[in-house]
Write a protein that binds this DNA or RNA. Structure first.
Lengths: 231, 231
DNA sequence: GCACCCAGAATATGATCAAATTATGCGAAG
DNA sequence: CTTCGCATAATTTGATCATATTCTGGGTGC
């Protein structure tokens, strides 16, 4: 598919029109990582991406630099860049940080909630459940992320939200591996409780539910990855 | 070979020997921002940096991308990049996030403290006090940052520490402006209390002291910048 | 097993094109 | 006659690419 074709087909994704090449490459690569299209440990080469994404070398370089700065990719010392492989300590850290940040975002989001926000979250959650029933891993990851992102937007706290987004990038590839291994059925969430809390105007309940949601999800990652390494 | 060479070269200029150009440019630009050498709102041009830092265009470009990804610089919509200007909401967010993260790092750092760590912190704090007495703003900023960084290293939590470092970059320029306005005398800290808590093995006290330290410092920024805008 | 060499990939440069901001000049209104 | 507004030109800056250079890793011969 040519570049022009890609720009024309961008009716869905808003404002693909006049975006610098490096921005487009960044977003595409970011999406690949976030949705686990890249395997942890996989090498990310500049020339490989110029071929795969039909982009020039300079834009690809810049996209890689941005993503390494965000922790979505790691510099391997010797000019090599790879998708990060999480160890037990990394996961423990991620649990701690995500728990804190996500709870705070939930608190703010619930406090500032507008009419219709609960419905919007419920719609996303319904799509999520549908993906789970289908066993659609890709759909599960996408909708789950959309659910949390919707809460971030409600919180109207851009710095906090950007930190949370950055954390998603760090475990996105590993999450995909875990979901592929245990299936979508065995990853419970607390979204229903959060929505109920939101409707009841119970800010603390929303925060509690999202904190548990995060911890539970991350624990699954730790358990599965830990088991994979042991035997 | 790399280990010996690194040890040899790292006597003074911390491994400037075999570092990619873009890495060197990144660190220099990062230091400029962190120490407030750049004024909030100032435009950061790629060609201006190639001239100032005597570097090529590509390395400068990559350094700018990395720093924008970290929030140290901001995209101004039309392809312009500037040093961020903090508004009241940004500062409130930063207070909240820093308070949380810094407290957690202090807790971990205190829990894992080795013999000599307290002395090391005390030495940095002494240098900090000396800078305050001299009215040396640059020295104050450097030593204050070193104090916190030393605590981060003790915590042995790289992800958490990288988030904290990223936050420093966001308010570095504004902090410099504030210090230049109110002087170094009027920015109290809780370092002595943290050191005392560390010696006593009181983890909670260290966390409390650092949390107050952060909040107090950020409140000064908010107050001064708020006053500057009002009249 | 060790040293050397080569292929391939990353780094870095400068040129070229496009976009945006600033400077400029013309005309009309006061 | 001066001044303001607007359109256009000029300059500055960013984006991209093609290319030269340097470095890493692996294979080969001894």
């Amino acid at each position: 598919m040519s570049v022009k074709a890609a720009q024309k087909e961008s009716s869905e994704t808003t404002e693909f029109a006049r975006m610098p090449e490096h921005e487009a490459v960044y977003r595409r690569l970011r999406a690949l990582i976030l949705h686990g299209e890249l395997v942890p440990g996989q090498a990310v080469t500049i020339q490989g991406l110029t071929a795969d994404l039909q982009a020039g070398m300079t834009p690809v370089r810049e996209a890689i630099r941005r993503l390494t700065a965000e922790g979505a990719l790691v510099f391997q010392g010797n000019r090599r860049v790879t998708v990060p492989v999480l160890d037990a300590e990394n996961i423990d850290e991620l649990i701690l940080v995500r728990k804190t940040i996500e709870a705070e975002l939930a608190r703010r989001g619930a406090a500032r909630a507008k009419a219709g926000d609960a419905d919007r979250l419920e719609a996303i959650d319904a799509a999520l459940d549908a993906a789970i029933q289908r066993g659609d891993v890709r759909g599960y990851l996408t909708e789950n992320h959309r659910f949390h992102t919707a809460l971030y937007e409600m919180a109207a706290a851009p710095i906090l939200a950007s930190l949370a987004e950055g954390l998603w990038l760090r475990f996105g590839p590993s999450l995909r591996v875990v979901c592929g291994r245990v299936g979508t059925q065995n990853v419970p969430d607390r979204h229903k409780e959060a929505i109920a809390g939101l409707r009841a105007g119970d800010v603390a309940e929303v925060a509690r539910a999202m904190e548990e949601d995060v911890v539970q999800g991350m624990e699954v990652i730790r358990t599965v990855l830990g088991e994979a390494k042991a035997p």
